[in-house]
Design a protein around this nucleic acid. Sequence first.
DNA 1: CCATGCAGTTAACAACTGTTCTCTGTATCT
DNA 2: AGATACAGAGAACAGTTGTTAACTGCATGG
Lengths: 208, 208
Amino acid sequence: MSHTLGVRQAQKQKTRQALMDAALGLLEEQSLSSLGLREVTRAVGVAPTAFYRHFRSTADLGVALVEEVLGSLHPVIRDLMSAVGDSDELIERAVELIARHVDAYPAHVRFIARERHGGVQPVRKAIREQLVRFAEEVSSELAKHPEAEGWNEDDLLMLAGLYVDQMLMTASLFLEALDEPEEERTRVTRLATRRLRLISIGRLNWLD
Amino acid sequence: MSHTLGVRQAQKQKTRQALMDAALGLLEEQSLSSLGLREVTRAVGVAPTAFYRHFRSTADLGVALVEEVLGSLHPVIRDLMSAVGDSDELIERAVELIARHVDAYPAHVRFIARERHGGVQPVRKAIREQLVRFAEEVSSELAKHPEAEGWNEDDLLMLAGLYVDQMLMTASLFLEALDEPEEERTRVTRLATRRLRLISIGRLNWLD
DNA sequence: CCATGCAGTTAACAACTGTTCTCTGTATCT
DNA sequence: AGATACAGAGAACAGTTGTTAACTGCATGG
């Protein structure tokens, strides 16, 4: 089935991945709109012109990064939302999942948070589309639970969007707390948990 | 009292303001981290070196923009929150206020949304501090209403932060809908209203 | 009324940028 | 085994950037 790539294509993908990883690293202290292609190739140790074999521009690179970073996250979210358990358990699990994800992939989270409203239109669009997909997936998972009885599709999508945005904000808060003492991280955990809990309470009393 | 500035200082402030306005304009299609000082001075029609008479760097300019854009907004928020009326009225008024503000100052909103998680640390910090102030002000206004009975200060601040973030997200949604048909704007209005309403319902049932 | 301070100018600098064209080596295909 | 496709290198381009220094003109304060 999965055809083993030739030496040639394998090397190409390796370089391509190196360019993307280098870009993510460089984006720690700047925005995509100021990322230069020479800067990226220099970090990888490859000639500037090699960049064009993989991407038309840094904006193009950015779009590819969005697919990589958010595309792989859909199954994770589906998993999380489809787990059984009461609402408080789910919230706790979600917050912890986010915390661990930020620990493991801080550059990913930073990139998405930064470029969601960033200065590069195609990248903004790519992120927006991915987030819409997340909201739709969360919405369809919510619909399966009994608490969703009586909810129309539109309201469910509104709630799902609220959850998605809240998760992203939580991730961003954890990111800011990365270099700070453990105490700050637990403060963020408590805050995010309470926010989600308040939203859940709103959800339970929505139909009145 | 308010001393009329000399011709000299007046002209200086005028140039300074021109630099800030030009920067806001240029930031429509890029991030602050890629904004060049020459670019700004060129837009104003002034020599590049004149920039240094007003700002140490474009990052410095950015911080000044944050003060101008958000600093002037505190009384507006206070006004909004201190008005009497039931919760639904307040929500409606808030959403409409945001819609009108985005119409009047789209560049302001874009700047804050973009640079809140942008690539320039001092600017991020300035925005974060202003948003904390907003949350504190909203919190202290909430405390005056009877619905806040039984709430501890920490939970009130959590709620206020949730409101502040929601307002900013709403503003950003209106911004994206600016060049789109009227229909899209009303969709955003409905969405934002329902989100705030759900949060309000959560608030009313929090103490159980 | 004259001396001072200072907003803005001019010129020059080394360093950097994206993009082009040409070339090279080697994995792949026939 | 030879022809071909193609990832990456190399060199050169015009244009841009931030920063420096020394200047000019004029509003201001003594």
